[in-house]
């Protein structure tokens, strides 16, 4: 029987050291699993594997010691609980995410539904290289944006509302970059937008509603974490609309299709053609409403 390893990889089956076995990677979005799904994963591992389950570095689950002949049966079982095999190889990989503002008190943006949206649109899309996306709910960056081809961080642009301020001094004390100075004599808050990193702490901490925040998305492009390590860089200004993030991803993938060579990682493409080329490419999307 001729087995096409590339096809298997696409279907989430990874060759093991033990030639007759495969490790089955599952497609899990934003690290979210339900009770039923976990139970089914456990059952499959018990019935078709060796009872072990491995958690991958990108929030995925792998069930090792799977035989090729059981693959279809397992696929059907997993489908009953809404699970499917994951993707490996040169394509858009699972979107990773933290729990975001719906669970984590530090969170500035919603991440669970957003990661699903991104995943539905882009997961598994064939490319010239692999492409990893992660979402962190705030600048604490638990999902390590800079290690991904495209890392997204929730951020917040603050605006001071003089009428509500009681000049308690908290925001000045907690701003991590000294972007806030309070002048008690003149009852004024001097905000330095050039210094501000949009961490949103002033907004979330002020108990007098004297900072208004606008939720935003900070995008980092071209990161990777393998034999060669490259930190993703901020190439475009903060984006304030979810829809716009989706079109930026769409155009970034087109950029890779247009400029990339086979197997060339996004980081290398950017290094070769320059970040400015990507900026030009995304200009129209960014300027649209």
């Amino acid at each position: 029987m001729g087995v096409d390893l590339q096809q298997l990889k696409k279907g989430g089956l990874l060759k093991q050291v033990q030639k007759e076995f495969f490790s089955l990677r599952l497609h899990i979005v934003g690290g979210q699993l339900t009770f039923n799904q976990l139970q089914m994963i456990a059952q499959v591992s018990k019935d078709f594997g060796n009872g072990e389950i491995h958690l991958t570095a990108r929030q995925g689950v792998e069930i090792p010691f799977i035989k090729l002949q059981d693959f279809e049966t397992i696929k059907n079982k997993l489908a009953q609980v809404g699970l499917e095999p994951g993707a490996c190889g040169p394509r858009v990989r699972t979107v990773t995410a933290c729990q975001g503002c719906k669970i984590c008190p530090n969170g500035l943006i919603e991440t669970k539904e957003f990661s699903k949206k991104i995943d539905e649109k882009f997961f598994g899309r064939d490319l010239k290289c692999k492409f990893k996306i992660s979402i962190s709910g705030c600048l604490n960056n638990c999902l390590k944006a800079e290690e991904n081809d495209l890392g997204i961080k929730g951020c917040m642009e603050p605006e001071w509302l003089q009428a509500n301020c009681i000049f308690c001094g908290l925001c000045e004390a907690i701003c991590p970059v000294d972007a806030i100075k309070i002048n008690y004599e003149n009852r004024d808050v001097i905000f330095n937008p050039q210094k501000c990193i949009k961490c949103g702490r002033c907004v979330t901490s002020c108990s007098s509603d004297a900072w208004k925040g606008r939720e935003g998305y900070l995008l980092l492009f071209g990161g990777r974490n393998g034999n060669v390590i490259t930190r993703g860089k901020q190439v475009v200004p903060v984006i304030y609309k979810e829809e716009k993030v989706l079109s930026v991803i769409e155009h970034t993938l087109k950029f890779i299709a247009d400029y990339g060579n086979n197997e060339e990682r996004f980081a290398d493409i950017l290094q070769r053609v320059g970040n400015s080329q990507l900026q030009k490419y995304l200009k129209e999307v960014l300027e649209s409403e």
Binding site: P105, I166, C168, L170, C206, S207
Partner: peptide, 14 residues
């Protein structure tokens, strides 16, 4: 201070 804010308290001075 933020945790107290979540409980409805107000920071008066720091």
């Amino acid at each position: 201070p933020r945790s107290f804010k979540e409980e409805g308290a107000q920071v008066i001075k720091v």
